[in-house]
Simulated scan of single mutants.
Amino acid sequence: MLPTSIDKITIDGRIFYVKRDDLYDPHLSGNKFRKLHKLIQTPKENLDKLISYGGTQSNAMLAIAKLCHLKGWEFIYYTKPISDAQKQQNSGNFYEAVKLSMKHIEIEHDRYKEEISNLRFNLDSKTYIVDQGGAVSEAEDGLKVLADEIKEQLKGLDVKSLATPSGTGTTALFLAKALPEYKVYTTPCVGDIEYLKTQMSALVDHLPDNLIILEPKKKYHFAKLYPSFLEIYKKLLNAGIEFDLLYAPGMWEALLEQTDEEVLYIHSGGVSGNKTMLERYMKITLSSKPTRSG
């Protein structure tokens, strides 16, 4: 596994560096291949099956599906009920994961938490559960590899701040722990700051002092469409790099408004889901246009 490259871009007159973890693999990329490092290194004969759960726009879902496809492992993924329209889509993370032989099981809303909590009962030795979003302590191994790459690649550059958006906060947490000499910025993309701290605190005894959680501009709901997010996406695309539409816009918004130094942004991948997100943006754009009478 070769170190991923670092590119330099200019946004609003500011220089940013971008660690291109999105280029590792179209499906198994970004912070997901870092979190899954231990499983990537696991000999295929050691396991038969991976189980996970969460949302059907999940980048982790697609990454695990690709990993299982490469290893020849069965992959079972649990979600709450989804619409027939989504099941029939011919693009997006869910579609790609099913193509990679993911077995999808729906659980009714009122039974979901109980069923997920029961998944660990009666597991055999060749079945492994990956918690939602890859939020497992084993992710620290892969993020230590990332931290070592960053330290080596930033030699000679006057960059002392890193940034990565947070769902569960696993990437930001373990990066901050491994790189105490750097500031590590993050912002919650699911829930608020207190929810994010709770998620992180489940993995460590205390949060590192160099981990800085930036307050979002307003309360954003995950996967909801925001015109400002689309504008940030286009601005970044014009600068030369495509980012995802779920996590990246909120992080970039916070960085541009609340920091002023040069920052290394860890690209989280996830651009495979942009096609369906852009289709959704297109629909609301068309529906909001006035119609001509007459």
Rank of each mutant, 00 (worst) to 15 (best):
L62T: 11
L62C: 08
A63H: 01
A63L: 00
I64R: 02
A65L: 09
K66V: 01
K66C: 10
C68D: 00
H69N: 11
L70N: 05
L70R: 01
L70P: 00
L70T: 02
K71Q: 12
K71N: 06
G72K: 09
G72W: 06
W73N: 01
W73P: 02
E74H: 04
F75V: 10
F75K: 10
I76E: 14
Y77K: 03
Y78T: 05
T79H: 09
T79A: 08
K80W: 08
K80H: 08
P81C: 13
I82L: 06
D84W: 12
A85R: 14
A85I: 13
Q86C: 09
Q86M: 14
Q89V: 10
Q89T: 13
N90F: 07
N90G: 06
G92I: 11
G92D: 04
N93A: 06
F94A: 08
F94E: 07
F94M: 14
Y95R: 02
E96Y: 15
A97R: 11
A97F: 08
V98P: 03
V98R: 14
V98D: 02
K99G: 15
S101W: 12
S101A: 15
S101P: 09
S101K: 15
M102Y: 05
K103M: 00
H104W: 14
I105G: 00
E106G: 07
E106Q: 14
E106C: 05
E108A: 15
